[in-house]
Design a protein around this nucleic acid. Structure first.
Length: 582
RNA sequence: CGGGGCGUAGCUCAGCCUGGCUAGAGCGUCUGGUUUGGGACCAGAAGGCCGCAGGUUCAAAUCCUGUCGCCCCGACCA
């Protein structure tokens, strides 16, 4: 492609409403433009990268046995009513009425396609002989984001690869799941992303039923813990922490329990300031309603409760923080003064609470706290649990090394669904004994445009983007420094023609502009390999070839330039391929 | 939906507090010339419903009210 014939509106300055690198760079390099909050146009350069990511996704899905189809974004609302997800999605589901003759039809724009595909498969596949099957599509999804943000990382309309597997049993599901998991590893590796496959909240199936693929990045919305020593990785919601010491007995140097006045001091921060103690010395007592029953949960003052862990420890469906009235009944005090001593409900404690000697807690009495509270003497526990959010530096649950807490961008998610949708939408099959069963499903999503955004967010320098060959809009940029010089230009045209001829994606910067101007743009858009033709080099019969990430160009005799470029690309592709797991 | 910030030329911004000549600068665009290896220089030109609506005033980019949009923090996010 010739630069003057395409559309690459680069910008010298950062637009004022872009704050994170991917947003700034994608705007400046002419990859995207905003239409409104949460909706972006992909300009020619950005779209080429998306298409390359799509191609990689397709190749790997096909390789893993996926079958591509294409489903409508427009969907009848009743499908969502039948699975209860109209309610569950709430405001996220974009839905509206259209007039058709004298009736109104209620439609939704698909936020995902479990309903459509399950309905389809349920109608047309009926036998165990036809299973398992894994169907996928690459398609635009719509989700009304209450607050779109971070440029193209969180939008209301985005491109997603969604795959759905249908099998007869858990074994078939596990089999497809494993194949999808490894296909995802290959996809993200081929795209040049640094990623982690992390354990995620897995719903009804439990165990290893869900993994998210995360690209570590400071501006990622998700938080994940990672153990560099053994490779354990999990999202923060899910992350366990390793063994921590703690005896259920009173320590040797136990002080006497004492009631102190703490008027108006209801938060950990206020009490610690008032009593001049550290939050680590305090016990936070949270009153929850767990399936309707009141439970007090003890967490160390400086820690944060993890409700998913509490729910699992209690073995209940749903928990929520109790209201004022319940707290009053259980503690006999207003909110902010709860403590374990003498409390009137079940008591659950995090491991770290047991290790606090002479703790400070609420007194279950207005405007009062207790000091010198000790486990065993002042309150009892039959056991402690892992109930809090993991912290940076916590011991790894697998190997006890220190966990790292990092932010991440979710680019993919694989999930064992089970029979939720097949039951709701009657996707059933007959087994060899002519018995009816709901199909066992899995779903597997990749945010295709997030792949590109995540790459932009993590691969750049002060001059601009740095693409891997696999996603680069063009692999080679040919820069004739002076387009008015005939020798320069005819050479550039020859390189352009011959390289394009051999299947390489080449961009020719045929703009009549100064050298420095072209170099700045070249760095900004980040094409991996650059060939500079002009002035000094030509006099010596040479051109310069330089990788975007190298400081130095290599000078190559004109006659050898094309074969040199081909060789460099072959070598580089091999290097990128070597990072892809088998 | 709660909190904060911002809407002036394609982009970055000044002017607003304290109302008053024809609304400004840099970058970009166009014309002509000089230049030509890291975002050149000179001369000229085009480009503005100062987000929109209403109000106050002799007079509003500027003050007031409303409204729309965008960004950030939080809540939410199968």
């Amino acid at each position: 492609m010739r630069w003057t014939k395409t559309f690459i509106p680069t910008m010298k300055e950062n637009p004022s409403d872009a704050e994170i690198p991917s947003h700034q760079l994608m705007l400046r390099a002419g990859l995207i433009r905003q239409l409104m909050a949460g909706a972006y146009t992909y300009l020619p350069l950005g779209w080429r990268s998306i298409r390359k990511a799509e191609r990689i996704v397709r190749e790997e899905m096909d390789r893993a046995g996926g079958i591509e189809l294409f489903m409508p974004a427009l969907q009848p609302i009743d499908l969502f009513e039948r699975t209860g997800r109209k309610q569950a999605f709430g405001n996220v589901l974009i839905n509206f009425h259209v007039q058709r003759g004298d009736r109104k039809v209620h439609l939704a724009l698909g936020p995902t396609h479990e309903e459509v595909i399950t309905d389809l498969v349920g109608r047309h596949l009926n036998s165990y002989r036809q299973l398992p099957i894994c169907l996928y599509q690459i398609q635009t999804k719509f989700r009304n984001e209450e607050r779109p943000r971070f440029g193209v990382l969180r939008t209301s309309e985005f491109i997603m690869k969604d795959a759905y597997s249908f099998g007869t049993d858990l074994e078939q599901l596990n089999d497809v799941y494993r194949q999808m998991y490894s296909a995802y590893c290959r996809i993200f590796a081929r795209c040049g992303l640094t990623y982690l496959a992390v354990e995620a909240e897995s719903g009804p199936i439990g165990g290893d039923a869900s993994h998210e693929f995360m690209v570590p990045a400071n501006n990622g919305e998700d938080r994940i813990v990672h153990c560099a020593a053994c490779g354990y990785a999990a999202n923060l919601e899910r992350a366990e922490t390793g063994r921590r010491s703690g005896s259920l007995m009173s320590p040797a140097g136990a002080q006497a329990i004492e009631k102190v006045a703490t008027p108006q001091a209801t938060s950990i921060e206020q009490v610690s300031r008032l009593l001049k103690c550290r939050p680590q010395q305090m016990i936070k007592t949270l009153i929850y309603k767990a399936d309707g029953k009141s439970v007090a949960v003890l967490i160390r003052g400086d820690h944060e409760a993890n409700e998913a862990k509490i729910r699992r420890a209690l073995g209940v469906q749903a928990i929520e923080l109790a209201d004022q009235k319940t707290i009053g009944e259980v503690t006999g005090a207003p909110v902010g003064f709860a403590g374990p001593v003498g409390i009137q409900c079940e008591l659950l404690a995090d491991h770290d609470v047991a290790a606090i000697a002479n703790a400070i807690t609420g007194a279950n009495k207005a405007d009062a706290h207790l000091t010198g509270v000790n486990l065993g003497r002042d309150y009892q526990l039959s056991a402690t649990h892992d109930l809090r959010m993991a912290l940076d530096g916590d011991p790894c649950p697998k190997c006890q090394a220190a966990l790292k807490l990092v932010h991440g961008i979710e680019v993919g998610h694989v999930f064992k669904l089970g029979t939720k949708y097949s039951v709701a939408l009657a996707a059933e099959f007959l087994d060899e004994k002519e018995q009816r069963h709901p199909m066992v499903m899995g779903c597997y999503g990749i945010g295709v445009n997030r792949i590109v955004a995540a790459l932009a967010e993590t691969s750049f320098d002060e001059n601009g983007l740095i693409w891997p060959l696999s996603l680069a809009p063009y692999e080679v940029l040919v820069i004739p420094l002076n387009v008015n010089e005939q020798e320069t230009m005819s050479l550039a045209e020859r390189f352009y023609a011959e390289l394009t001829e051999s299947g390489i994606d080449v961009l020719l910067d045929d703009r009549d502009a100064r050298a420095g101007f072209k170099f700045k743009d070249a760095d900004l858009i980040g094409i991996p390999l650059r060939i500079v033709i002009g002035g000094k080099g030509l006099k010596e019969g040479q051109v310069e070839i330089r990788w975007r990430w190298e400081a130095q160009a290599v000078k190559v005799p004109i006659g050898e330039a094309i074969s040199a470029v081909r060789e460099m690309l072959v070598e580089r592709r091999a290097l990128e391929a070597a990072r892809v797991p088998a």
